[in-house]
Design a protein around this nucleic acid. Structure first.
Lengths: 117, 117
DNA sequence: ACGCAATGTCGTATATTTGCGACATACTTC
DNA sequence: GAAGTATGTCGCAAATATACGACATTGCGT
């Protein structure tokens, strides 16, 4: 890319893109679903449930943690990861607003027909 | 990555990740917003409204088109791009389902407190 | 203190993304 | 048919992402 031009866009666009990127990998989606399904905030057992090495899973966890989508709490020897429900809720609203805005354009183009340019 | 291991995950996870990746760049978010704001399905004028070269914009358009999120229709010399409202709606529901699932785990971890591991 | 188990970090290899200039293509107009 | 405009495609360069083995770190138990 010779240069990441993310700076030239709206803060909203960057924020949405940042979160979207976090979900842009099946492993991270799976991790979030795992954390949601397990009531207990499991730790490195996550790696055991995914077809990836522990190292790779750890990296994905760090990425999610960097966005604060998940929290990690050290409990002695193990680390408990849990979802940041508030943030997820907030992100959900953000995505919803985006999709509403996108789908509320009205009848511009039909299912397959031509545009009225 | 030495190898993309996307094949080892659920179809749902892959699908969500695929769409998320499409939104994982501010330029593509901006393009969708642009198409939503303009009633007319503008064509290469998109490039003029973004801080990117025409070539780069064209590539982003191709990526979005590959997922069928947008449609391109040749109108003589220009090309009219428009949003695939149905698909966007569908994707919205997909994301909503994911977020609902993620945020409906109940009080596992509070805002800042410890997990009950 | 010693060893063991659970995690995170580092370094590395490979694949993918991003951005853009240079060309090719297609259609309109004269 | 020639000239001009709007688009898409190709090829290259640089940045990132992905995956993982090897090592460092930390806390538990004896």
């Amino acid at each position: 890319m010779t240069y990441a031009k993310t700076a030239a866009f709206t803060a909203d666009q960057q924020q949405l893109a940042r979160v979207a990127k976090a979900l842009a990998h099946p492993a991270r989606v799976a991790i979030i679903q795992l954390l949601a399904s397990k009531h207990t905030c499991i730790s490195g057992d996550i790696a055991a449930e995914l077809p990836l090495s522990r190292t790779t899973v750890s990296q994905h966890l760090q990425e999610l943690k960097a966005l604060d989508l998940i929290r990690g709490e050290i409990d002695g020897l193990t680390v408990c990861y849990c979802l940041n429900i508030e943030l997820l809720h907030q992100v959900h609203q953000q995505f919803t607003a985006f999709f509403i805005e996108a789908t509320a354009t009205g009848p511009v183009c039909g299912p397959e027909d031509a545009c009225a340019c």
